[in-house]
Amino acid sequence: METSGISASTYRQPQSSADKKLKAVADQLEATFLSEMLKSAGVAETPSLFGGGAGEGQFASFLRDEYARELTAAGGLSLGEALFNSLKERQNDE
């Protein structure tokens, strides 16, 4: 069975420690973007009835951030991949 789309294996695998740091930063940026998108979508919002009160609302951002990190680790939107590849190409051009 054939599948289409981008997979996590299309990353240019980091070879040096600088590349590994660059990949980590690109993935963190993707996770931050996903967290904001999840916030806009209303993920982890405190329900008006039978909610956990003020404490739940204060910690909702931590839950969204963790969801975003897990989504990124699972392949995410491939935004981190695109950023890493673009920045790596830019480094090579210099």
Rank of each mutant, 00 (worst) to 15 (best):
M1H: 10
M1P: 12
E2G: 12
T3V: 13
T3D: 11
T3M: 09
T3P: 06
S4Q: 15
G5I: 09
G5P: 09
G5L: 09
G5C: 08
I6V: 10
S7T: 09
S7M: 05
A8H: 06
A8F: 08
S9R: 12
T10F: 13
Y11N: 07
Y11E: 07
P14T: 09
P14S: 01
Q15T: 06
Q15W: 03
S16N: 04
S17H: 11
S17F: 11
S17E: 14
A18V: 13
D19A: 09
K20C: 00
K20N: 05
K21W: 02
K21Q: 10
L22K: 05
L22W: 03
L22Y: 03
K23F: 00
K23D: 00
A24Y: 09
V25H: 12
V25W: 13
V25R: 14
A26L: 05
D27F: 04
D27K: 10
Q28E: 13
Q28S: 13
L29K: 13
T32F: 13
F33V: 08
F33W: 11
L34G: 06
L34I: 15
L34A: 12
S35E: 15
S35W: 08
S35V: 01
S35T: 07
M37H: 12
M37G: 12
L38C: 06
K39M: 11
S40F: 13
A41W: 12
G42I: 04
G42W: 05
V43Y: 14
V43R: 09
A44F: 15
A44I: 04
P47F: 00
L49W: 11
F50D: 02
F50E: 03
F50V: 03
G51D: 02
G52D: 05
G53S: 06
G53T: 01
A54V: 06
A54F: 00
A54P: 02
G55W: 02
E56T: 06
E56I: 01
E56N: 05
E56P: 03
G57K: 04
G57M: 06
F59Q: 14
F59N: 10
A60M: 10
A60Y: 08
A60C: 07
S61T: 10
F62A: 12
L63Y: 11
D65G: 14
D65L: 10
E66C: 11
R69V: 11
E70A: 13
E70C: 07
L71W: 04
T72H: 01
A74Q: 04
A74P: 01
G75S: 00
G75L: 00
G75Y: 02
G76K: 01
L79A: 02
L79C: 06
L79G: 05
G80T: 03
G80D: 08
E81A: 04
E81I: 06
E81F: 00
L83K: 02
S86M: 06
S86H: 11
S86C: 09
L87P: 03
L87Y: 02
K88P: 03
Q91Y: 00
Q91F: 05
Q91L: 12
Q91C: 08
D93S: 15
D93E: 14
